[in-house]
């Protein structure tokens, strides 16, 4: 838990800074609006966390989100009755893409950077091919509810995020989480201890694909249908996860911190907007903060416990 402290500290500072600049943020409505904006990235970060902590990359999520939104718009096409079947189909498609990523990475032994880069090319090419370059169709009102609607005062997306957080935290405390971290830490040792490494990694990719599907459902409602909706999300989400202190290469970091990283990134965007640094220079600031934050994370003073308790390998 101590390892997670820096990111929660940074997040708190940013939230206080936002509240000072914009007191509306302290009211429930203002804060829930922020949660609603952050939810898609946070969910995507939870999925990416599984892949990164197992020692791999998933670069395909950005184009997967775009693909899902475009598919949804085309299939729903304004028909309210199609909402639920299409949502089921989107989740299945996300899981399928994740499974392919995972199986090619583990069974064919191709580096996941390349597998998911190939998947990125395939998905973005295939979607453009299918839609002739510009997405068609429209989402139904019911479908868009998840991204922008509310139940009473609470946005749907905040509830979905809550459910996802509860699920992933439970998952990381269960046997699966322990074996996943062990795999990322030392794949050979994990395999020798009886972890089915291939299966664990493939499940991590499936979870990442599923998170992209959920993210797409929220973003489709929130931001609408466009061919750019997922652009750059893959790098943004890896940034968020790494900001949360999760180490590229695997075996270190917690899922709560990864989600906090996503909130931190969103808070940063909000703050920059409030201070009028929107658009162009936003990227420069984002890049600087990314480097500084990760550098501070690795150069942390020695008070931090050097060795964690080795994860138990029960299965």
């Amino acid at each position: 838990m101590r390892r997670n402290l820096p990111i929660f500290g940074v997040l708190t500072v940013l939230l206080v800074a936002i509240a000072i600049a914009n007191p509306y943020f302290l009211e429930p409505q203002g804060f829930l609006a922020f949660v609603k904006r952050a939810a898609p990235l946070a969910i995507l970060a939870a999925g990416q966390y599984f892949v990164i902590v197992s020692g791999e990359f998933d670069l395909s999520v950005g184009s997967l989100v775009t693909a899902e939104v475009v598919i949804a718009a085309r299939l729903v096409d304004g028909d309210p009755g199609a909402t639920w079947p299409v949502i089921a189909l989107l989740l299945a498609f996300g899981a399928l893409v994740g499974a392919v990523n995972g199986l090619v990475t583990t069974l064919l032994r191709v580096p996941s950077f390349i597998v998911t880069l190939g998947m990125l090319l395939i998905l973005s090419g295939a979607v453009s091919l299918w839609t002739d370059g510009s997405p068609r169709g429209a989402l139904s009102e019911q479908f868009r509810q998840f991204g922008r609607g509310t139940i009473g005062p609470v946005p749907w997306s905040a509830l979905i995020l809550g459910a996802v957080v509860a699920y992933v935290v439970w998952l990381m405390r269960a046997d699966f989480g322990r074996t996943l971290v062990a795999t990322g830490d030392n794949q050979t040792a994990a395999a020798l201890s009886g972890v089915r490494v291939h299966r664990v990694k493939t499940i991590a990719f499936v979870l990442s694909g599923l998170s992209a599907a959920v993210c797409a459902i929220l973003l489709g409602g929130f931001a609408g249908v466009s061919a750019q909706v997922g652009q750059g999300l893959e790098f943004q989400v890896i940034t968020a996860v790494v900001l949360g202190g999760v180490v590229l290469g695997g075996g270190r970091g917690s899922v709560a911190a990864a989600i906090a990283g996503a909130f931190t990134l969103q808070a940063l965007f909000t703050l920059l907007n409030l201070h009028g640094i929107s658009g162009a220079l936003e990227f420069t600031v984002q890049g600087l903060i990314l480097i500084v934050a990760v550098a501070l994370g690795t150069l942390q003073p020695s008070w931090r416990p050097r060795r964690r308790k080795p994860p138990a390998l029960t299965s």
């Binding site: 390349i114 190939g118 998947m119 395939i122 090419g125 295939a126 091919l129």
Partner: peptide
């Protein structure tokens, strides 16, 4: 756009 698809497949 088909080029991207083929590129991805060739790469993997």
């Amino acid at each position: 756009f088909a080029k991207d698809v083929v590129r991805g497949v060739v790469l993997v």
